[in-house]
């Protein structure tokens, strides 16, 4: 789970130009990355490619933080 979380934070920071050191697991990812629904789809695609899983976007509806997202990915890995 920690490994997924760290890779997720690395990937999100690189993709959206955020300061990796400033991103915390409990951060609201939409606010931290300043992304809207369309950019969130880009992140979803990146995550599917990175982790080799398929993540139905309805599972992300209630996800707000990076650690919640990492938990969703972990369940699919």
């Amino acid at each position: 789970m920690d490994r997924i979380l760290h890779r997720l934070l690395d990937l999100a920071a690189a993709r959206f130009g955020a300061d990796r050191l400033a991103l915390k697991p409990q951060d609201d990812m939409y606010e931290a990355l300043r992304i809207d629904s369309m950019r969130a789809l880009e992140l979803l695609t990146e995550l599917e490619n990175e982790f080799g899983v398929e993540i139905p976007d309805y599972e992300l509806q209630r996800v707000r933080t990076f650690e919640e997202l990492a938990a969703v990915i972990a369940r699919r890995c």
Partner: peptide, 10 residues
């Protein structure tokens, strides 16, 4: 039925 989106690879 799900309304979900799928990736280009899928």
């Amino acid at each position: 039925l799900t309304g979900r989106s799928i990736s280009a690879a899928r």
